[in-house]
């Protein structure tokens, strides 16, 4: 473990090297990718990236919780949450398992 934090700038750099785009263009493309994924999710679509994982929206019902400070009951509004489900290929790679097979995303 190196404990680094990768940011948009690192992704842009990688695109510069890989595809030979200018830094400005690469940064714009990174943003476009994130925008397209966000837009699809906002439309309620599931986004499936083969060999990486899928992002989907789960609808949570209203429920009653408590204000942890005062102990008073508090209504928690119904809301949408984003769930990321990693593909087996990603999980295996993180654990040093080489997979050659196809994807597991349905």
């Amino acid at each position: 473990m190196t404990g680094r934090t990768i940011t948009r700038a690192d992704l842009s750099d990688a695109i510069c090297h890989e595809v030979g785009l200018s830094r400005v263009d690469a940064a714009e493309l990174v943003e476009s990718v994130l925008d397209e994924v966000s837009d699809a999710l906002t439309r309620g679509e599931t986004v499936k990236i083969s060999s990486f994982g899928s992002f989907s929206i789960r609808e949570k019902a209203e429920r009653w919780g408590r204000n942890p400070k005062t102990g008073e009951p508090a209504r928690i509004d119904p809301r949408s949450v984003l769930v990321f489900r990693a593909s087996h290929i990603l999980k295996d790679r993180m654990n040093g398992i080489k997979t050659s097979g196809d994807d597991d995303l349905e």
Partner: peptide, 10 residues
């Protein structure tokens, strides 16, 4: 470009 992004994250 798309593959590079997800490969970098991986």
């Amino acid at each position: 470009i798309v593959n590079t992004i997800f490969d970098e994250i991986t």
